[in-house]
Nucleic acid binder design. Structure first.
Length: 223
DNA sequence: GCGACAG
DNA sequence: ATCTTGTCGC
């Protein structure tokens, strides 16, 4: 899966302007079609944040068995700024995606989609540049408010921001802290929520995230 | 103006 | 994000 990205922003101002332009291309009203391969993406940082390891794992949609995986280690060139996470993590993720052999049908990122200050979180950025369905599952709150979802697995509450439903706060396991789901591109809030629940059949976090997380750490340690 | 703030 | 395995508790 090749993604070309010319002129990557170097300053926060340029980055925000870029998000403003690309945000208009996001589509979160098209239902997710048939899915055979699901990609999970995550990034690991060196203790001094000088280097970053991007990892992507591809799972079979039915069995959740690992079908493919790839990593990419490089120097970090953008600081961590809430709202601009994509500019820090995408270079490594794009590089890893280029090394895949199996073409995924949907990308599951560690972070947010449209539940973002400018409606353009990491999952949106990945989806738009890849031209594929993408969604995000985050572990902690960022933007938006919601009611507390019930304690049963599968219970969810709308994540609302600026009067719009931008995602869902989903309980993936009984009595565990909920996760934050939001669509990134070519997928709806409902489809993203169902996908997240299905991927988190056994643990609080989706299998995609768990696999990609450990893969990125191993790649960093081995580099 | 003051805090909060994905990873 | 990162330092970190087993262990106490529901």
């Amino acid at each position: 899966m090749l993604i070309t990205h010319e002129k990557w922003p170097r300053t926060a101002e340029e980055a925000e302007a870029e998000q403003g332009r690309l945000a208009g291309l996001v589509d979160v009203s098209t239902p997710l079609g048939p899915v055979r391969y699901i990609a999970g993406l995550d990034v690991a940082y060196a203790i001094d944040s000088s280097r970053v390891a991007g990892a992507v794992v591809v799972l079979d949609a039915d069995t959740l068995a690992v079908e493919d995986m790839a990593t990419a280690v490089m120097d970090v060139e953008f600081p961590y700024v809430p709202g601009l996470l994509a500019f820090r993590e995408m270079p490594a993720l794009i590089s890893a995606l280029a090394r895949l052999t199996v073409e995924p049908d949907v990308l599951v990122a560690d972070g947010y989609g449209i539940a973002h200050p400018r409606r353009f979180g990491l999952a949106c950025h990945l989806g738009v540049l890849a031209g594929k369905p993408a969604m995000g599952v985050a572990k902690t709150a960022f933007v938006g408010r919601s009611a507390e979802p019930g304690i049963q697995r599968g219970e969810a509450a709308d994540l609302v921001h600026d009067g719009q439903v931008v995602g869902a706060v989903l309980r993936t396991q009984l009595s565990t802290k909920p996760v934050y789901v939001s669509p990134g591109h070519l997928i709806t809030v409902g489809d993203a929520t169902r996908m997240a629940l299905r991927l988190a059949a056994k643990y609080r976090l989706p299998e995609t995230t768990r696999f990609a997380d450990q893969l990125s750490r191993r790649a960093l340690a081995a580099a």
